[in-house]
Design a protein around this nucleic acid. Structure first.
Lengths: 135, 135
DNA sequence: CATAGTTGCTTGTATTATGCAAGTGACACG
DNA sequence: CGTGTCACTTGCATAATACAAGCAACTATG
């Protein structure tokens, strides 16, 4: 359901960057193609991970939200970020992002308060805001 | 480093099923093609996730092991299993595998003793054995 | 100790997934 | 109204994966 090249990146955009619309996802750094994005959004919706609702003011747009099934993928995302945080520590990868972001990423590695971090992320997603500070 | 169709499945085979050799990986249910398997093993080795050592008795074979960097992916695998365990609960997916396996999978969802589970898995991998009972 | 497997690959080609460029209709905005 | 934006779709190019066959090094067997 999310083992292709793009699905988890879309979910990441929602979870960490507060993105909601087709156009938001298109503008991600990784530059997904328009047809692939449309296809993935449809699949994720079919699989009950996303659902779309009409945009409150702009009739051209829809807002995509995570279902509860989709929200349950947050721990998975956290572990991916935690692993990449270790890569940074191991000097295997240049730390991209702001110092504040690097701090947050490294926090993901601490097993102790993982439940708290996941809750913070859920709250941010529910509030429709972003977890990482925008660049 | 593991965002393609096969890499995580190979790592899963090592972690949960105690697989070690090229032939072991080929015999997985998902039926990876021989050329793709060779390519992925080489990539994973290049990326420092796997390393291969000569088989102690059979000169044709090599044993593939996870490096520490690879072992650090175990929490990620645990979350994937935990999520699929929830799928089973939600009746969205038929429970394949033995009842004992289903019990183990559901255990992965309990946030409380996640650290203990991860340690158990690490121990099994280090012992060269399997974590899930074989079918 | 010759021979028939087995093992871990490689090589060529078919198929599928992804990428790119150019649309299109519905709507927003001035 | 006219122009731009938005969320797509369509047609074609390229890259990733799949399939089939083969091969050298080794192992097991009579």
């Amino acid at each position: 359901m999310f083992g292709d090249k793009w699905s988890l990146l879309i979910i990441r955009d929602i979870v960490f960057w507060g993105k909601k619309t087709y156009g938001d996802f298109l503008r991600s750094d990784e530059a997904i193609a328009t047809n692939i994005l449309a296809s993935r959004l449809a699949q994720l919706e079919e699989n009950g991970i996303l659902e779309k609702k009409p945009h409150p003011t702009d009739k051209r747009k829809d807002n995509y939200f995570l279902t509860e099934k989709g929200m349950e993928l947050i721990p998975l995302l956290v572990e991916i970020v935690a692993w990449s945080g270790k890569l940074i520590e191991w000097q295997a990868v240049a730390g991209t992002g702001t110092p504040e972001q690097v701090r947050q990423v490294k926090r993901f590695g601490a097993t102790k308060n993982k439940a708290r971090i996941i809750q913070e992320i859920r709250d941010a997603v529910n509030a429709g805001s972003y977890f990482f500070a925008p660049r």
